[in-house]
Design a protein around this nucleic acid. Structure first.
Lengths: 197, 197
DNA sequence: ATCGTTAATTATCTTTTGTTAATATTTTCA
DNA sequence: TGAAAATATTAACAAAAGATAATTAACGAT
């Protein structure tokens, strides 16, 4: 029962891997729980954390000079999450990573697995895929900003990730859409009243 | 004289490469000129073009259903440009790539160099760096949308790329900032009058 | 269940943007 | 150079967003 999540993880990572690669990776893997509200990675952290989320949801945000929090991304069960700044760009994280629900992850320290990854063509390819996925997501996101109005961005989110919408407080969603919570509220009521016509 | 551009190119690509790698790549490299206004890559194109821009400027844009053009990115001399959809995601390009000035590039077909790249650890690393750079740029761009107002985005562009601003018609810049040309014009006049106080 | 906190909605007002159209300015090139 | 075309600016109005504050709703802890 409990094992299912780990199985999912191993399936997702190792599906195309040889046993040799998998074996070399496993010693560095450790499961971990994060309570709802708890911060998983602090701003300024340099640890190269890389994790598979088996349950729950994590929000990446940054703190503006005036104290406002701006949500940059959301990740949930079945997805990978990485401290982008430290793992990818080798610098202290500008972001916080906070669990919005009780969350279970399976994490590795990228510093430790890097040699293994570098020496395995298959793992290197996986890393490449990971990068490509992130890039694809980022570019898609940029398109929503240049192509869509705030309302259209919200509708798109509503259509594509209705479940996520219910799990994340609107104040976090709004800043991710580039608008204020008040404005999101108005958009919602606008949509609701339009539906009634 | 004319050679300088090619030299710049080889320096930028091969600075860390062994001679063997460089030698294997050179046969696939071909210079090409694109007239101002000419479209370099058409929407729907599947050719995996990858090019170093030695002179000029290229605009990536897409055509909305209503016929509007939305500028997605600009690239100029000293930078690489790739048909993102075809090279990275292996699908037909949703974008047009148009030279805004008389442009000179040095291009390769990624299909042809891929085996070479795959067999060279150094070239593979370069590819990785390229991806990381694209990702970094994309993420920075996303941040400008969630953190800054349209006016602030314009000011940022003005401060960081003043030269580019003078080389690209405002109507193209505006859609890249997620606003209309009219709105950009107002922002400009607002800034101008604010400076006069 | 209730109090206290946090989040969401609503209201009011100001500012900005979108839209469309008219006008002015630049660019292009014949 | 001068006319035509392409860009940019300005105007006028409607629609949307930001800011702030007040009100309502939802949530959590005891």
């Amino acid at each position: 029962m409990e094992q299912q999540k780990e199985i999912d993880f191993y399936l997702s990572v190792f599906k195309d891997l040889g046993i040799a690669d998998a074996d070399r990776l496993i010693p560095f893997v450790k499961p971990r729980k994060i309570d709802a509200g708890e911060i998983y990675i602090q701003e300024g952290a340099t640890g190269k954390k890389l994790a598979y989320i088996s349950r729950g949801l994590i929000r990446t945000y940054l703190l503006k000079a005036n104290g406002d929090e701006i949500t940059l991304m959301l990740r949930w069960e079945g997805q990978f999450i990485a401290s982008v700044d430290s793992v990818l760009f080798n610098r202290a994280s500008r972001f916080f990573y906070q669990a919005l629900e009780d969350t279970e992850i399976i994490e590795v320290d990228y510093d430790k697995i890097q040699p293994v990854v570098n020496n395995s063509p298959l793992l290197s390819l996986s890393r490449n895929d990971f990068l490509l996925n992130m890039l694809a997501e980022a570019m898609e996101r940029i398109e929503t900003f240049v192509l869509l109005s705030p309302e259209e961005r919200y509708v798109k989110l509503l259509e594509e990730k209705p479940d996520i919408l219910n799990r994340v407080p609107g104040k976090y969603l709004s800043t991710m859409l580039g608008i204020t919570p008040v404005s999101l509220s108005r958009i919602r009521s606008r949509i609701a009243s339009a539906g009634k016509l």
